[in-house]
Every structure is written in structure tokens, then in C-alpha cells.
């Protein structure tokens, strides 16, 4: 009954997540709007492009009821541009920037429950324009690798140059993976690494290695860290200049 998986999403769970991304569908058949659990869908009227979640788009595609319009970044032009950025020596240290988050959802008062959906901030895979035709051409969305892979597998005939896109996607993946591995040189027991621009599947791929390493290093360094923490706490107290013998005595008892 209990889930036998260790913490951290598996590759197929990341795939499940990416299927909630919205893509642009060009219907070949009419379909009225549906009242789905995740919100209403727009009615399909050929040939007007309509945004739909990827899982539904793939279902329609398989039954030849619709075509999928690939997002602008998932094209030879878009991907070569991003590939150039990734391989440029001036930007060798960073990943190409990810798409921007939408503005924050209203003001929070501070007493809302955990995950109260009154003021919930949207994040991938629920951004409105990350994989639709309105998506930025020069930024990869969080689920770029998964969306690209699924579209190339199930809707290859909707691309102008599927082979070119596939090749670029593979190149991009290799360039970014080697960058990610190089970046882990800075890892130490404290964790604290900024990973802006890294995608969902890439995180799933390195999670086991990174998590294991950081936690392992931390366990080895535990005693050193504890003694440093104590020393720093002491320094702070002395810095305030207010610690008397009595205070130290109290601390000892804690």
C-alpha cells in the first residue's frame, strides 16, 4: 500500500507531469467543450488552433482527430539559437535562461492554509504559454526535453523537419548534461547550488547522484560542521557583547 519508491520523482512521473503542459492543437473534427476535472476545455472548431493539455492533444492526434502545432522553440531555428547560446564560450558557465514565471497571484495574508488554492502561484507544467504556439522562441521551458520527445515520437509529421529537430534536441541535451556535470564540482556538504535553467528531466536524471553525494559529504563532515556552528553561535554572542557568565551557564543546560 505504501509507495515503495524513494523520495524524488522518477522519469515516468516527470513524463506524467509534462503531459499537463498546454500545446496548440489544430482540430480536424468538431468537439464540444468538455467539463474536465482540471477545468473546462475550449470547443474544437476546425481549423482554429486551440490550446489543450498535452495528454489530450496526444489522444486526439493518435485518433487522427487533430494536428499539433509545435511550439516556436521546438524548431530548427529556435533550437539552433539556444544551442549557440549553450556552446558560446562567453556563456559557458550558465544554462540558457528558462521561461519567465507569470506575475505573482495576488497578495497573500500569511494565514492561508498549506496549498490553499485561493492564492496559488502557477508554475510549470501549468504555465499558459510554455509549449503553445505563443511560447517564447528563445527560451526552453522546464519540461523541454519531455515535451520535445513526446511530440517527436507521436506527432513527427506535424514538424517541418523532424530529423533536424531531433538531432538538435539530442545535441542540446548532451551539451547541457556535460555542463551540469561540470557544475557539480562546486558541490559540497552545504548544498546551496543555483540551477536556473535546468529542466525537469535533467533534474530527475542527476537527483540520485547529487542527493547521495551531498548527503554523504554532510555525514562525513557532520562533526566539523557542528563544531563550527557552535563556534559561530559563540562569536555572535560575543559580538553582541552582552554575554555574561550566567548566560553561558543557561546555554549549557539547553
Amino acid at each position: 500500500m505504501a509507495l515503495p519508491l524513494p523520495p524524488g520523482l522518477t522519469a515516468s512521473e516527470v513524463g506524467f507531469l509534462c503531459e499537463m503542459e498546454l500545446v496548440t492543437v489544430i482540430p480536424r473534427q468538431r468537439l464540444e467543450g468538455l467539463e474536465l476535472l482540471g477545468g473546462p476545455t475550449q470547443p474544437l472548431n476546425p481549423p482554429f488552433p486551440t490550446p489543450l493539455p498535452l495528454w489530450l492533444a496526444l489522444l486526439l492526434k493518435k485518433q487522427k482527430r487533430a494536428n499539433i502545432n509545435p511550439p516556436a522553440w521546438l524548431s530548427v531555428d529556435g533550437l539552433s539559437h539556444i544551442h549557440d547560446f549553450e556552446t558560446d564560450t562567453r556563456t559557458a558557465e550558465v544554462f540558457s535562461p528558462s521561461q519567465a514565471l507569470p506575475p505573482p497571484a495576488g497578495v497573500r495574508h500569511g494565514y492561508e492554509d498549506y496549498l490553499s488554492s485561493d492564492v496559488i502561484d502557477f508554475a510549470p507544467p501549468f504555465l499558459a504559454n510554455s509549449s503553445t504556439t505563443g511560447a517564447q522562441a528563445d527560451a526552453l521551458p522546464y519540461h523541454w526535453l519531455e515535451v520535445g520527445h513526446l511530440l517527436l515520437t507521436h506527432a513527427a509529421d506535424d514538424f517541418d523537419d523532424p530529423e533536424g529537430v531531433r538531432r538538435l534536441l539530442r545535441d542540446l541535451r548532451e551539451v547541457r548534461m556535460s555542463k551540469l556535470r561540470k557544475g557539480f564540482k562546486v558541490l559540497d556538504a552545504g548544498a546551496g547550488v543555483k540551477l536556473n535553467g535546468v529542466g525537469g528531466m535533467e533534474i530527475a536524471e542527476v537527483r540520485g547522484f547529487v542527493g547521495g553525494m551531498v548527503d554523504g559529504l554532510r555525514k562525513i563532515n557532520r562533526s566539523r560542521e557542528e563544531s563550527r556552528r557552535e563556534r559561530e553561535a559563540e562569536d555572535r554572542e560575543n559580538g553582541l557583547g552582552g554575554s555574561s557568565y550566567q548566560d553561558d551557564e543557561d546555554d549549557m543546560q539547553l
Partner: peptide, 26 residues
């Protein structure tokens, strides 16, 4: 956005948070 869509985002977040955190969340 309709409440149902916001709830889907919230539920998905609840799931990912629970799957990846070492500790139990509320």
C-alpha cells in the same frame, strides 16, 4: 483561472512536494 484548474495546480504541487521531501507536509 477557474477554481478547478487552480486545484489541479495545488494537487500536483502537493504530490510533487510529498514525493520529493524527506518529511511529511501538512
Amino acid at each position: 483561472v477557474p477554481q478547478r484548474t487552480r486545484d489541479l495546480q495545488a494537487l500536483t504541487r502537493a504530490w510533487v512536494n510529498e514525493r520529493t521531501s524527506p518529511d511529511l507536509l501538512p
